[in-house]
Amino acid sequence: MSRFFIALLPPQHIQEYANEIKQYFADHYASRGAQKSPPHITLQPPFEWSDAKVPQLEASLREFAHGRQSIPITLNGFAAFPPRVIYIDVVKSQPLLTLQADLMAYAESNLEIVDQVSQTRPFAPHMTVAFRDLTKPNFRLAWPEFVHRSLNFDFMAENLTLLLHDGQRWNIKSEFAFCPNR
């Protein structure tokens, strides 16, 4: 069994910007947890999956993605899940909310992947830059520095990304393009 999750990844220049912020948190606030994955917006939280059935998982995600079109994503400023997590805020657009809800329903009905926590709280799209290893005192120091910092990026999410945990960090396993002319 391996651990996977499904996400949207921003274009390379936005990933580089987010990684610089993650490095800043590592250097100034001893928070390195966010560096264990590429910058992303989680759509399907981590789940266990049989290594022997990865081709089935990938084929199913390819089929799901093919039935979708690219969606616009807006990143706007910073927000937090006090007292530990700071993130780049993702605007809750209807296309993003629909994609996430459809993916969760599809994963449940076609792959029997169910995330109990996600079923009890609303989807809060975000791109983490300081993770749960940020101490409460460091959160109190860092948050005033980021709460009013401006950041604005717009991009088109062109595909779903399946990430695989290697025991240390999350790596891109495969990507599934949205069908551009649906």
Rank of each mutant, 00 (worst) to 15 (best):
V129P: 10
S118K: 08
L151P: 03
T120N: 07
P144W: 12
L164D: 15
D115I: 06
F146I: 05
W170T: 02
N159S: 10
H126T: 01
W170C: 10
N171L: 15
W170I: 05
V117K: 13
S174R: 14
M156S: 12
I113W: 02
S174K: 15
N171W: 13
W170N: 06
R132T: 02
H126V: 00
A142G: 07
L141K: 08
W170R: 04
T128L: 02
V117E: 13
K136H: 07
F153A: 01
D154M: 02
S109E: 11
E158F: 04
L151V: 02
D154I: 00
E112D: 13
W143L: 03
P125A: 01
G167H: 11
D166W: 14
E145H: 08
Q168P: 05
N110S: 09
K173A: 15
W170H: 08
R140L: 11
I172F: 12
S150M: 03
F131I: 01
V114T: 09
L164H: 15
L163I: 06
F155Q: 03
V129E: 11
R140C: 05
F146P: 09
D166K: 12
L151N: 02
N152Y: 05
A142E: 09
T128P: 03
M156R: 08
S109L: 09
F131H: 11
D115K: 08
Q116M: 11
L134D: 07
E175W: 09
G167E: 13
N159F: 10
V129A: 06
D133V: 02
P125G: 00
D154P: 00
D166Y: 14
L151Q: 03
N138I: 00
N138V: 00
V129M: 08
N171G: 13
F153C: 00
L111I: 05
L164N: 14
L134V: 01
F153E: 04
W170Y: 12
I172W: 12
F146S: 08
P122Y: 07
E108A: 13
L151K: 02
P137V: 00
F131G: 03
W143C: 02
I113H: 04
T120L: 10
H165L: 13
V129L: 04
E145S: 04
S174H: 15
S118C: 09
A107P: 11
E175C: 07
T161I: 10
S174Q: 15
H165F: 15
F155D: 04
E145T: 02
S118E: 14
P137S: 01
F131T: 00
L164W: 15
H165E: 12
D133R: 04
L141S: 05
N110Q: 13
I172R: 15
E175N: 10
D115Y: 03
W170L: 10
R169S: 13
S150R: 07
D115C: 06
V147W: 03
S109Y: 10
N171H: 14
S118P: 08
K136N: 02
L164E: 15
R121P: 08
A130I: 00
S109N: 09
R169I: 08
P137Y: 01
L160V: 04
A142F: 08
P122Q: 09
L141Q: 09
F123W: 01
E158P: 05
D166F: 14
S174L: 12
S109M: 07
E158D: 07
D115P: 07
A130T: 02
L151W: 03
K136R: 05
